[in-house]
Amino acid sequence: MILEAINISKYYGEFCALKDVSIGIDEGEFVSVIGPNGAGKTTLINVLTGFLKPDAGQVNFRGKDIAGKGPEELSTMGIARSFQLVHIFPELSLINTIKVAIISRQAKGMRLFASLARDKEVHEQALEVAELFGLADLLEETAKNCPQGIKKLLDVASAFALHPEIILLDEPTSGVSTSDKNKIMQVLVDASKKIGIKTVLQVEHDMDIVFSYSDRIIAMQQGKVLADGSPAEVEKNEEVICTVVGQKECFQTFNRIMSMNREERA
C-alpha cells in the first residue's frame, strides 16, 4: 500500500468534514473519489497532502506516518497534487512554471548564480512535460493570459513535472466543457504512463470519466466512506449512485446512459 489513511477525522469548528475515514491506495491504482458536494472529498485530499492536519487518525505514505508534514516535505517524498481552483503563477510563462517544478525536483533551487537559461537539462525536461500536455506552442505565454483550460492543464502539468510516485488530482476536468473532458483525461493518463507515475487519485464529478478510467472508486457522503470497490461493484450499488447523482429515480437512467456510452465507445 502506497498511501493509507487510518481513521482520520477532521472538524471545521462544529462541522465534521471527515468522520473516521479509512482508505488505502495500492501502487499502480487509478482511484476516483466521488460524492455530492460537501461530502469531504477535497478535505480528504487536503489531509492526504498535508495541507490540513487531521484532528484524529494517521496518514501513512509507504508505511511512514506523514500527518502534519507540510506540503513541501511531502512533495519531496513523492506526493504531488493539483487544485480544484487552478493554482498557477500568474506572471510566469508556461515554460517557467514547469521549470519551477523541475528545479525543485533536481534540488537546484539554491543555485544563486547559475544561469537558468543555459541549463539545458532543466529546459529539455520542461519541454518534455509541456509536449506531453500539448502546451509546446504556448511556452512563452504568460500564465494569467491563458484560457481556463490551459491554466488547468498547466496546474496539473507542473505537478506531473515533479515525477511524483502518487498524484492527487482535485477535479482535473472541472470548469472544462464536456467535450474537452475526455481529451484532458486522455492526456493525463498518457502523461502519467510516459512519466512513470503509477498511482493516481482523483476527485471527479463526471460519472462517465470516473467509470471509464478508474480501477477503483471510493464514494463518500457526509464525511464518511459509503462504498469502496471496483467500478463494476459500485455501479450496481443503488444507494451510492443515488446519493452521488442525487435522485432516487436516477438509477435506471444512470445505467442506461452508462451502457449507451459503453456501446458508443465499442
Partner: peptide, 10 residues
C-alpha cells in the same frame, strides 16, 4: 506569485 502552489512544488 503563489506561495501555496510553490510549496506544493517542493
Amino acid at each position: 506569485d503563489n506561495p501555496d502552489k510553490a510549496e506544493y512544488l517542493g
